[in-house]
Computed example of a mutant assay.
Amino acid sequence: MTRLAFSTLPCDGWSLEDMIQLAKKCGFSTMELREGTNWGISAEMNAQERQLTVQKFEEAELRISNIGSSVCFTGHEGDQEQLNQFQKVASLASDLKARGVRVFLGYFRNRRDHSVPAIHYPQIVKSVQEACDYAGAYNVQVWVETHNEFATGRSLKKLLEDVDRSNCAVIYDIIHPLEEDELPLDTIALLGSKLAHVHIKDGTPFDDPMELSWKYTKVGEGQVPIKTIIQQLELAGYRGCYSLEWETKWRKELQIPGMSPEIVFPLYIAFMRNACQSLKKRGSYL
């Protein structure tokens, strides 16, 4: 199971040592590090702290897939500040030997009846290009997550074409295109080789039709066709990680007993092992 990862998002307040220990205990090979002092790493770390972090991961024989930044470009005022933060995180990613830095585009909203400003698309393209050009000097990629106004393969395919940078790729968060009624097969076909990383999660639609987001569940207990998505990704040639993004920090439905990382992470490993048994016969080595 060399391609299973998890985001450290639910490990808010943990030490890096505790996160690494849990990763080893559960059988993960890779970690996706949330950037921020509450998650054990930060863009403000000095050179010695960065070197020590690399050493900890090498000793544990764990890889760092990417840095999960909170950088978000909207095409409006504030993008320069976001770009400044991105540059700090790109330097951190390079020092920690991570392949990419996750960024968001657009505005966050959970309900259809919540209005947000119109995005300024040309400026978003420009901001992503500037991020890519800066990251390229560090041999780091910019990973745009399927989210907000850019949740679908349809929207991101055009963005990738307009950005036109070889180090611009996509994190396929498998629940968000579904929330926008885009089928996984279509998302995968549209984004193809630009899929660098996959966020695994599960859920069900809320009863309220105004809710844009789905209600999250444990993996395997919702309506996201995870096993089918994995099969389609493997057939399409995807060879990146499958990373559990357990959003305890943001989701009330996950902030209840029985939903802690210590409980959920082993269940995720077991689910993925079961899901991938048939794929091994086709030459996949998850």
Rank of each mutant, 00 (worst) to 15 (best):
M1D: 12
T2R: 10
R3A: 04
T8G: 15
C11H: 01
L16T: 03
L16F: 05
Q21T: 12
K25D: 10
K25I: 15
L33W: 02
G36W: 00
G36D: 06
N38C: 00
G40R: 02
M45N: 10
M45Y: 04
L52E: 11
K56F: 07
E58I: 13
L62T: 03
R63D: 09
G68Y: 02
G68A: 11
S70Y: 07
V71K: 00
H76I: 15
H76Y: 08
Q80R: 08
E81N: 15
Q82E: 14
F86C: 02
K88D: 01
V89H: 08
V89Y: 04
A93R: 05
S94L: 00
K97G: 05
R99A: 02
V103M: 04
V103D: 05
F104W: 15
G106A: 06
F108Q: 07
R109C: 13
H114E: 12
V116R: 14
I119C: 13
K126I: 03
V128F: 10
E130T: 13
Y134D: 12
A135N: 03
A137P: 11
Y138V: 12
Y138E: 10
T146F: 03
E149G: 04
A151I: 14
R154N: 03
L156D: 13
K157Y: 06
K157P: 11
K158N: 11
D162F: 00
A169P: 13
Y172A: 03
Y172I: 04
I174E: 13
I175T: 04
I175R: 11
L178K: 10
E180A: 10
E182G: 00
A189F: 03
L190Y: 13
L190W: 02
L191M: 03
S193Q: 06
S193N: 01
K194L: 05
A196D: 13
H199W: 06
D202F: 00
T204Q: 08
P205W: 06
P209N: 05
P209R: 08
E211R: 11
S213V: 10
Y216W: 08
T217S: 03
G220K: 05
V224H: 01
P225F: 11
I226L: 14
I230K: 13
I230T: 07
Q232H: 05
E234Y: 14
G240T: 06
S243F: 09
E245N: 09
W246I: 09
E247M: 03
E247I: 09
K249G: 15
K252Q: 13
K252E: 12
L254T: 07
Q255T: 09
I256N: 09
P257G: 06
G258F: 09
P261N: 13
E262A: 10
E262T: 06
I263Q: 15
L267M: 04
I269H: 03
A270F: 04
M272S: 10
R273C: 02
N274Q: 09
C276F: 12
L279M: 05
L286W: 15
